[in-house]
């Protein structure tokens, strides 16, 4: 008898009293009525609490702010589907490297790269959570992980208040990364410290009109 058959047999025997579970009550909040300004205010509060850098800007200001946030970078990697006009104001000396199908950066190359710029799929204001789902403007998971500085573009139109409101906007079978602030740990005396293995700097641009 295979392990699978045996385990399934044990389960049947364990449940021989045929327990019937109650129907799941879903009385928790699944929709909200917050205005755009309230959503922005809540999200900024959460991100600042996580010690992420955050700016609320207009669409036209993206290149200027990207350049300002990455002024100390030597090189920047971006997913091939990212709007390249956003990188237009970066100084000449900063290498701009696209990570594209067929020309993927190696892990070692990513480790040499100072920063990464990505877009994002949906963001939850209540918990300050930005979700990346591997769309061409967000890229594969490694590029937003290995470089030490992540600059993430969040369109204001993609902000929701509640997690249940974000769920219909996700394609669950894609590799998903939920990001709530820079890498952190609470492992020493249960006190939160930012900056461990993931990007130690997270900058977020909340963009109106995008």
């Amino acid at each position: 008898m295979s392990a699978k058959e045996e385990i399934l047999g044990r389960i049947r025997s364990a449940l021989s009293d045929a327990p019937v579970a109650e129907e799941t009550p879903r009385e928790y909040r699944t929709s909200s009525q917050m205005s755009e300004e309230e959503l922005i205010e809540m999200l900024v509060d959460r991100l600042v609490d996580y010690k992420a850098g955050v700016e609320v800007i207009d669409n036209a200001q993206i290149p200027e702010l990207v350049a300002a946030k990455l002024k100390d970078a030597n090189s920047v990697v971006f997913p091939h589907g990212l709007d390249q006009r956003w990188l237009a104001d970066l100084p000449q000396g900063v290498a701009q490297i696209a990570d594209a199908p067929g020309s993927r950066l190696t892990v070692a190359e990513l480790d040499e790269t100072s920063a990464v710029v990505t877009s994002s799929q949906v963001t939850i204001a209540e918990s300050g959570t930005i979700i990346l789902d591997g769309e061409p403007n967000q890229g594969r998971r490694a590029i937003s992980l290995v470089p030490d500085h992540h600059l993430c573009i969040v369109p204001v139109s993609s902000i929701v208040q509640l997690l249940p409101e974000a769920m219909p906007r996700l394609t669950i079978t894609r590799p998903l990364t939920w990001i709530s602030g820079p890498s952190a740990t609470s492992d020493i005396e249960l006190e939160r410290v930012e900056g461990v293995h993931g990007p130690r700097t997270l900058d977020v641009l909340l963009v109106r009109g995008l």
Binding site: D49, E126, I172, P175, W178, R192
Partner: peptide
Amino acid sequence: GERMNPYTSLWT
């Protein structure tokens, strides 16, 4: 005791 943990990964 955080509103959300810094990272969650989902893979299929």
